[in-house]
Design a protein around this nucleic acid. Structure first.
Length: 602
RNA sequence: GGGGCUGUAGCUCAGCCGGAUAGAGCGACGGUUUCCUAAACCGUAGGUCGUGGGUUCGAGUCCCGCCAGCCCCGCCA
């Protein structure tokens, strides 16, 4: 429907121009051209679109808004191209112009979309610059826990949307595989479990995590250990073969564990950890110095921040890029990463949009680092650098999610929990309904629905707010949940099985014929899809897509409930099958962009 | 002390860069099945959009003050 909206907008602009030529010319001269304020209708009874531009013109033109609207409408009605798209416009309220598309235009749009595998979503021109989505980012030698859930799920969904739009997307896993923590761990292991540093899988990951905790505790309390750890980091950074080998072993082991989770969630990631940027850190600092941004403060090399508006000194603490002991820290790595990602190949990735999906607590860190990168001139003028923050995962008590014993919840356990509950629920239902299904079916449904529920629950709330994790709510069969959406797909699959073989593709009536209000509601909802994708691409808010898919499911369920499909006569039958096909395609594609696969039966 | 985010129905949340009478789900109450999976559908009740100002034709949305909650705040990531 974006195509139609654009056409309408230019027709409106033309009408505006012809109705008020002097005002339009003056506004253009002033650098603020008149606006149509065309948008989707706020309510179905207002039609498909509404143009609010007349209201804003009342003051400059010194005319009543409704009179302005009438003048615009008179021009529109004299435009044959407009009449081909719309019914006669209506002026409502204080001066809104309500536009309703002609039924044949809507029906033709449905036909067009049925023939388009992209469902009306345009693809960007080939050869576009890469977009980088930096997400997930667990730490080596630690297990993935609930803190990685949102970044992983949200980042993956954003990457999928961007990929579908045709952008070359680099999904980067900026794993924590460098720095003091490794010095600590290797030093500790040398003393307590040296075999882990020489032999692959000598200890399992759970033990490694325990060793990590011990190392951290020693680091915080034991000065000699601290010194040893720092020396170990230096050895590692210098490329000492023994240290390197130990480091490689640890990384490989963690990597395999991470991959189990990523495989379960069907998430593709390219690992490019902090260590990757190690060779660039020196130059980053040197170039900041050359740019005159560096200030030495208490032995540390810092960049002091300025207010974004006025350029005066900021209250915020400075970005430290070199510690007083000469070492680099995460800000340095992040700066090196930003620079590399925007840099022209082969010196870098040549990206024009870089997206960081991390928790909202890092907002000030990124604001600082982004500012330094900008002032250093590392971000091209058309480059977009965006932090995509999200809130905490909370338990149902409203506090940060923990296990009963107060520990961090491991991601694997969380996912298993959802699948287990789903399976128990399914078995109960099968027993109640006296349905017979084999174990493979039960396993597939439980895994698909369980993981879908976890993903959908996370994606469906506005990511910026904290998110309350609740198995009961996410697995509920009704409401804005994954099971509800998946069930809508299953219902359509049922129709196809029951003799709607032509739903699979062959011949739909030309033109499609619709009479029932539920059909029109479904048509209108289906045609919004392209606009929703455009919005998610821009705003990076997957919950907009969730809301859309939920509403589509609701509208479909009403249609399904009140309008017979297979029992109808032609051409209604074929037209309704067309709506079913397009609904299924839209739900499958939309859920796919959320990282959620669908089922034929459940 | 500085900064950020949040505050909308009993609960969980939407609200698309200011637009018409503030929406949905859950929960509550009441109804619908000889028919494509009722994991569904229909209806009823329920809100001073934290609070006080301001901006304007028009504010849940923008600006300022205040209150509450959460988070961050220089050599960890």
């Amino acid at each position: 429907m974006l195509r139609i909206a654009h056409a309408l907008n230019s027709q409106l602009l033309g009408a505006l121009e012809r109705a008020f030529p002097e005002a339009a010319a003056a506004a253009r001269q002033a650098g603020a051209p008149l606006e149509t304020q065309l948008g989707p209708a706020s309510k179905p009874e207002f039609g498909d679109f509404q143009a609010n531009g007349a209201l804003a013109l009342a003051r400059p033109l010194r005319l009543a808004p409704r009179a302005i609207a009438s003048a615009i409408v008179a021009q529109l009605e004299a435009d044959p191209a407009f009449n081909a798209l719309c019914m006669p416009p209506e002026i409502a309220g204080p001066g809104f112009i309500n536009l309703t598309l002609r039924p044949d235009v809507l029906a033709a749009e449905v036909s067009r979309r049925l023939a388009d595998p992209r469902l009306g979503v345009p693809s960007v021109a080939p050869g576009a610059a890469p977009v980088i989505v930096d997400f997930s980012s667990p730490n080596i030698a630690k297990e993935m826990h609930v803190g990685h859930l949102r970044s992983t799920i949200i980042g993956d969904s954003l990457a999928r949307v961007l990929e579908f739009r045709g952008h070359p997307v680099l999904r980067l896993n900026h794993v924590g595989d460098w720095g003091t923590q490794f010095g600590m761990l290797i030093t500790h292991l040398k003393q307590v479990a040296p075999e882990a540093l020489i032999t692959a899988d000598a200890v399992d990951l759970g033990d490694l995590v325990a060793f990590y905790r011990q190392a951290k505790a020693r680091f915080d309390s034991d000065e000699a250990f601290q010194t040893q750890s720092r020396e170990e980091v230096v050895k590692l950074q210098r490329g000492d073969p023994v240290s390197r080998r130990a480091w490689q072993l640890l990384c490989n082991q963690s990597r395999r564990e991470f991959q189990l989770i990523y495989d379960a969630l069907d998430i593709r990631l390219e690992e490019r950890g902090e260590s990757f940027y190690n060779p660039y850190l020196e130059t980053v600092v040197a170039d900041l110095a050359t740019a005159g941004l560096l200030v030495s403060d208490g032995g540390a090399q810092c960049v002091f921040l300025v207010g974004e508006e006025d350029g005066t000194a900021s209250q915020a603490p400075p970005v430290i890029v070199r510690k007083s002991d000469g070492g680099f820290n995460y800000a340095t790595t992040d700066l090196a990463a930003i620079r590399y990602r925007f840099a022209v190949p082969p010196a870098g990735d040549g990206a024009r949009r870089v997206i960081y999906v991390t928790d909202a607590g890092q907002a000030s860190h990124f604001a600082g680092v982004f500012q330094v990168a900008r002032r250093a001139g590392w971000i091209p003028v058309d480059g977009r650098l965006e932090h995509v923050p999200f809130g905490l995962v909370q338990g149902e008590d409203g506090k940060k999610l923990k296990t009963r014993s107060g520990e961090t919840v491991r991601l694997k356990e969380l996912l298993d929990g959802a699948v287990e509950r789903c399976e128990a629920d399914l078995r109960r239902r099968l027993a109640e309904e006296e349905r017979q299904e084999d174990e493979a079916f039960i396993a597939e449904v439980a895994i698909t629905v369980g993981l879908a529920a976890v993903k959908y629950a996370d994606l469906s709330t506005n990511r910026i707010t904290n998110y309350q994790f609740s198995f009961d709510r996410m697995l509920a069969l009704s409401g804005n949940t994954a099971p509800y959406l998946l069930y809508a797909v299953v219902r359509i699959a049922g129709i196809a099985r029951r003799g709607g073989a032509d739903a699979a593709g062959a011949a739909f009536p030309v033109p499609l014929v619709f009479d029932e209000p539920q059909e029109w509601a479904l048509v209108r909802q289906l045609l919004q899809f392209d606009a929703v994708i455009a919005e998610v691409e821009e705003e990076l808010l997957p919950n907009r897509l969730c809301t859309y898919l939920f509403e589509l499911s609701q509208v479909f369920n009403r249609f399904y409930d009140q309008v017979p499909v297979l029992k109808a006569d032609e051409p209604a039958r074929g037209s309704r099958l067309a709506l079913c096909r397009l609904t299924a395609d839209t739900l499958k594609l939309g859920l796919g962009l959320l990282g959620i696969p669908t089922l034929e039966r459940m």
